[in-house]
Amino acid sequence: MTAEINTRLLVEILTARRDDFLAQWTRTIGDDLQGRLSLAELGHELGELYEAVLKAISIGGLDGRGEHFGEARSLLIELSRNRARQGFTPTETARSVFALKEVLEPSLAGEAASAQAYLQFARLLDDLGLLTTEAYVRTREEIISSQAEQLLELSTPVVKLWDGVVGVPLVGTLDSARTQVVMEKLLQTLVDTDSTHAIIDITGVPTVDTQVAQHLLKTVVAARMMGARCIISGIRPQIAQTIVALGIEFGDIPTNSSLADALRQALKEIALETEDDVKGLL
């Protein structure tokens, strides 16, 4: 029964002093954020949230996890996502909720009759505050993984080295995701530049293990299917010794210690091929 009395009391005071509370709430957070968000925008955001929370409480009471809080929760998630994207901290984001406690405290906490209602309301706000942190973290994770993907794209350039020759300087770890990106870019560039030779340079790959080797082989096979020849360059002495000890065989794939040697080899082959073409015509 007391829960119902508390709920009624809260709804009454939140309704009666709406404008007053809302203004204070907006001001408190506005001070916190020091002008990084306009007061008008903030007021609008918090106004919507205030209405949603008030409505939820009057419909179904103070259980923030209940279905009646659905709208309030989605507003909060939206708010947290925006804050995360705008670069606010998770603390600042959670404060947006917790600050409402401070606003209500002087009017409710003082009297025995309303103190209980205040405590229950505070608990509700704690729950909602945690929700913002969760949503905030999830958004940041999304941002990070999309940045990682962009970085992957950026860090796998495929360049035209010469007429008929494209180069793929690999730097870092060659995992499955990376291999996929490299392969797609290489095949596309071969077509776009009408090239017959590809040089995959692994100077920047610190560890060449069976996984990397398998990925390299897969890339070479794919390029072959497009009629291109691949040369693997940048095999440093310590990598060469390690590959041999591991037992990896690159078969008939030509390898070179330097990119320059590989390019020379590719150009020689191209020259021979054109010669053959000319002879074939005669």
Binding site: T207, Q238, Q241
Partner: peptide
């Protein structure tokens, strides 16, 4: 030495995976 380092790191890569 660099050769030994590379061999050890590569072995660790295999066994870790």
């Amino acid at each position: 030495s660099l050769v030994h380092q590379t061999k050890l790191v590569t072995a660790a890569s295999e066994l870790g995976r």
